[in-house]
Design a protein around this nucleic acid. Structure first.
Length: 313
DNA sequence: AGTGGCTCCTGGCGGC
DNA sequence: TGCCGCCAGGAGCCAC
């Protein structure tokens, strides 16, 4: 899933070849990819020169003279500098002069593209929170944003209005690095913990960028290269595997409809901490699932009908 | 206003 | 072997 580090990787790769080229044509292969028609996109973009490549949150911004070609990869979107489609359906193609085609593939068809007048950039991104690496994203900002929130910490991190660019993988990894449990109520995070979370977010995202992203599903950069961050993940996608720090089995719960991975030993939930309502429910669901699966139960105790020990609740 | 559930979409996988 | 049903999840929408 392309998040900030993957999108940054895409932008850096495109920045080596697109600036200076002139957009010659746009072809829409899947109407779902844009609310704007092919004609509208062409009218807005054709004949304009690429000035720069930028990123805002998880959005790729191809900055042309006076207008932005904005792409969101969502789940499975891929921008490739490829000579041909290789048989896969192409959602859109941007053709540049001289002789450079940028192809957009997207298996699940969630990805979107927009032509945005440069003057409307702020309005277009108005709902996005600060950039993690921007001057605005300080520990003080994070403390203020967390204050009073009752949602789980994990859900808070996924909310693009609070901080832009964090997705499921980097949220789980940052919480592990900060040694914070994902079901803690966001507003219950103390000042020292907010500092840890702030630092952990930046370190985790930077590590992702350094490794050119995580190639978990289908992510590859525009040259078709895979990232390497998936090789050093601490918790994401490692359910049941030993924590790299302490050896405890990594656990998984579902929070806000998203798979959430954590180490129960490195990210403990001290008694008395305020949990998010959704977090409590998630932990209860996991306990129930474990009970049904017989996890933790000793190999079939003969006839002893549910002796109370460590029982439900 | 904040929270959380539902929806979109399809390849891949587990189960029967 | 083949088919069915479920799962993954970013972000927008909606109900409470």
């Amino acid at each position: 899933m392309p998040e900030l580090p993957e999108v940054e990787t895409v932008c850096r790769r495109l920045a080596t070849c697109l600036p200076g080229l002139v957009l010659d044509d746009i072809e829409i292969g899947d109407p779902l990819v844009s609310a704007q028609s092919g004609d509208e996109l062409r009218a807005a973009l054709r004949g304009r020169r690429v000035v720069a490549l930028r990123r805002r949150g998880k959005y790729v911004i191809i900055e042309l003279e006076g207008v932005l070609l904005v792409v969101h990869l969502r789940m499975t979107g891929r921008l490739l500098l490829a000579p041909d489609a290789g048989g896969r359906p192409v959602r859109f193609v941007a053709r540049f002069r001289p002789a450079t085609d940028l192809l957009f593939y997207d298996t699940r068809r969630f990805g979107r593209v927009w032509a945005v007048p440069a003057a409307d950039e702020n309005r277009f991104f108005a709902a996005l929170g600060p950039e993690p690496f921007g001057a605005e994203f300080t520990t003080a900002y994070l403390r203020g944003a967390l204050k009073g929130r009752t949602a789980p910490l994990k859900s808070f991190l996924l909310d693009q209005r609070r901080v832009a660019g964090v997705g499921n993988i980097y949220a789980d990894e940052a919480l592990f690095r900060a040694r914070l449990h994902p079901v803690l109520a966001a507003g219950a995070v103390g000042p020292g913990e907010a500092q840890r979370l702030h630092d952990a977010l930046l370190e985790t995202l930077q590590l992702g960028i350094d490794h050119e992203g995580a190639s978990i599903e289908s992510f590859v950069d525009p040259a078709g290269e895979r990232g390497a961050f998936q090789e050093i993940l601490n918790v994401y996608g490692r359910v049941g595997e030993p924590c790299r720090q302490c050896g405890a089995a990594v656990e998984r719960i579902e929070l806000g409809g998203r798979g959430t991975h954590f180490c129960p030993a490195c990210q403990p939930l001290p008694r008395g901490r305020r949990l998010a309502a959704g977090g409590r429910a998630a932990l209860a669901r996991r306990r129930e699932a474990q009970r049904l699966a017989g996890v933790g139960a000793q190999p079939r105790p003969p006839a002893a009908p549910r002796a109370g020990g460590g029982g439900p609740s």
